[in-house]
Design a protein around this nucleic acid. Structure first.
Lengths: 216, 216
DNA sequence: GTCTATAACCCGATAGAC
DNA sequence: GTCTATCGGGTTATAGAC
């Protein structure tokens, strides 16, 4: 009984990216789908298997989602909203006139999110091409907000002289690149916890931005 | 006539990663496969379409490759061998007792390769899970060589005091992460040419390694 | 070495009972 | 809201003629 509760709590924690109010079956379907899409890829996953992982018959999926792609879109939407939320929170907590603190906090937050929810992060970053054009465009809007915030932070720091950034566009891309690729290689069994990796990458970001005192 | 020759030359240049001696049809199949796998993914690509892109019937594929996975494996093998070759060449040209020059040259070479052959790079980095276990193990050996060379360079530089690297393992991972993710976002129509991007990432690598004079 | 034809199977999605 | 049954189509790979 206690064992049972512990397992439920553990799963809730592991799937905390899924914080939307949902019918229980729809929630189980999304969790099964994200795990299957991450492990084998969207196209290699059969809707039958997703249904089975949620304890439903093959037809049970279509009561809750019109198509298989709709399942992927909901995962992408919820995942990206979650990322945007932690990025905004990190920027707010760092204050508005300290580019170095902001850059460190934002990169740490994105990195930790990608590590903690690496299964979800893998799906939302590497299955964008499996979305319909309309859905991909909706997701692109959310991704642009994150990109803009990092770029603006680099520009602020460069303007005030605390950063040395020869190419703001290229450095923004490199910083986000670093955080996104965490989804590819991160495993929960690895050496670093998500928050530790976030702190490390926050420092790396300051070095990449040419922050004074961030290099030997 | 001249136009025709130019197009052939342009394609040869674009597909220079494929430098193995091969029957013409096998070569066309590999090029068609890499383009399709990169654009739509391995599982979303039908062998019929690969055959058609090489001007063959659906059965024509199986004269040259036993399975669809064998096609992916050959692409992975040739691509990884090419990467290892440019990495070795970069390390050799930088000399053996200058960790900063070596790191810059190696990261620049991997980055430029991933940008120049971004289509191939996408396939060989993001379709590893579609390989059989045996084939994936063979590719892992090649990947380890690249990882070891970067890690050793960081250790050499840290030991001699030209680098400031608090976590060699983590920094190695971050550096390779940066170069691999190029395959995800790079487009030939973008702002930077492969060699320019390589030079930029070589400098970023020195900053990340805490190289003196690489930060403001 | 390439073709046509097809085997054997798996897929996403729907119909209609309960 | 979930089931069983199935439609219509697509998949990899093979058989056998040329």
């Amino acid at each position: 009984m206690t064992q049972e509760l512990d397992q439920t709590e553990a799963r809730d924690l592991a799937e905390a990216w899924l914080d939307e109010p949902l019918a229980p079956a729809a929630r189980r379907l999304l969790i099964g789908a994200v795990e299957a899409f991450a492990a084998r890829g969207y196209h290699a996953t059969a809707t039958r298997d997703i249904a089975a992982s949620a304890g439903l018959s093959p037809a049970g999926v279509y009561v809750h989602f019109a198509t298989k792609e709709e399942l992927l879109y909901q995962i992408s939407l919820i995942g990206h909203r979650g990322t945007v939320r932690v990025v905004r929170a990190a920027a707010a907590s760092a204050g508005h006139d300290d580019p170095a603190a902001t850059l460190r906090a934002v990169i740490a937050a994105i990195t930790a999110w990608h590590a903690r929810y690496h299964t979800t992060a893998r799906v939302i970053n590497y299955e964008l091409s499996s979305l319909t054009e309309r859905h991909r465009a909706a997701i692109a809007t959310l991704r642009r907000e994150i990109d803009s915030l990092v770029r603006q932070t680099l520009e602020d720091g460069a303007a005030s002289g605390v950063f040395d950034v020869p190419d703001v566009r290229g450095t923004t891309l490199a910083l986000l690149s670093l955080t996104i690729d965490v989804a590819r290689w991160f495993r929960a069994t690895g050496a670093r916890a998500p928050d530790e990796l976030g702190a490390f990458y926050g420092e790396l970001a300051l070095r990449m931005a040419g922050h004074r005192g961030s290099s030997a």
